[in-house]
Amino acid sequence: MQKEFVVISAHVGDFVWRCGGAIALHVAAGYKATIVCLSYGERGESARLYEEPGMTAEKARARRRAEAEAAADVLGATIVFLDGSDYMLRVNDEMLHKTAAVLRETQPEFILTHPAADPSNLDHVTTFNFALEARMVAQAHGHPGGAVIGAPQVYSFEPHQSELCLFKPDTLLDITSVWEVKRKAMECLAGQKALWDYYERVGLQRGAVSRRRQKGKATGPIYGEAFQSVFPARVDLL
């Protein structure tokens, strides 16, 4: 049976910047990836689009959706839109139960989402809590739907300003082999072009940190991504 995982993203760009490498890497290894995108970021994360004459929130929403679909296609993932609005992101029971249904359908090995704290973007905090609620609903026998899920690990991906978010990564992923795929996905996001090079620098920095954490003296990763696990991991040996 094919293994699957789910990404729960506040805005259309988040899943690309923060974990596009993880998505591409696991898809290349045979996993199926499903991205649940709560909003299009047409208000707070599309400033460049509003430089165009006649731009409206509705036009920006359509543009950002197309960008997200293109990026997901590059990464090899399926994307589900919940059609929320950003800044401020408000979730509802329909969105929650739709996401719980995705979790039951996919039976994910793990879930990727935002960290618990982000004072510079409360939409991300809302999404973290939403992801845990959806996981909880998907575990509950009393709700209708498919088979309940187990207890998949939840990994918070690296926020834009880690120092503000109490982000302490405990997992470093080597994404060197899929970096060009991630870069191509980033370049689908024309509405946030200013972030392309920024997140390349983040990838290089995490690659450098990863090299210091490996055994031996091999060359090691060039590009990396960082994650913080939410739950303890069950192991047989250290």
Score class of each variant (00 low, 15 high):
residue 231 F to V: 00
residue 213 R to I: 08
residue 36 V to N: 13
residue 48 R to A: 15
residue 163 E to C: 07
residue 51 E to D: 13
residue 124 H to N: 03
residue 57 A to W: 12
residue 210 S to C: 12
residue 126 T to G: 02
residue 197 D to C: 00
residue 165 C to T: 12
residue 129 N to H: 13
residue 202 V to T: 04
residue 51 E to C: 03
residue 87 Y to C: 11
residue 108 P to M: 13
residue 78 T to P: 01
residue 227 F to P: 07
residue 19 C to D: 01
residue 63 R to E: 09
residue 35 I to G: 01
residue 53 P to T: 09
residue 5 F to A: 07
residue 66 A to S: 14
residue 108 P to E: 13
residue 49 L to V: 08
residue 8 I to E: 07
residue 133 E to C: 12
residue 170 D to C: 12
residue 88 M to I: 04
residue 158 E to C: 14
residue 175 I to T: 14
residue 84 G to K: 05
residue 4 E to P: 00
residue 162 S to D: 07
residue 192 Q to N: 12
residue 19 C to S: 08
residue 17 W to D: 02
residue 128 F to G: 01
residue 138 A to Y: 10
residue 96 L to K: 09
residue 8 I to L: 10
residue 233 A to C: 01
residue 167 F to S: 14
residue 164 L to K: 13
residue 4 E to R: 15
residue 94 E to K: 14
residue 97 H to T: 14
residue 87 Y to V: 07
residue 83 D to S: 10
residue 142 G to M: 12
residue 78 T to K: 04
residue 158 E to Q: 15
residue 192 Q to P: 05
residue 223 Y to K: 02
residue 80 V to C: 05
residue 193 K to S: 07
residue 211 R to F: 05
residue 116 A to C: 07
residue 216 G to H: 15
residue 71 A to C: 09
residue 171 T to N: 08
residue 112 L to C: 07
residue 84 G to V: 04
residue 220 G to E: 06
residue 235 V to L: 15
residue 78 T to G: 01
residue 64 R to W: 04
residue 182 K to T: 01
residue 153 Q to Y: 03
residue 216 G to Q: 15
residue 83 D to Y: 12
residue 104 R to N: 09
residue 60 A to C: 10
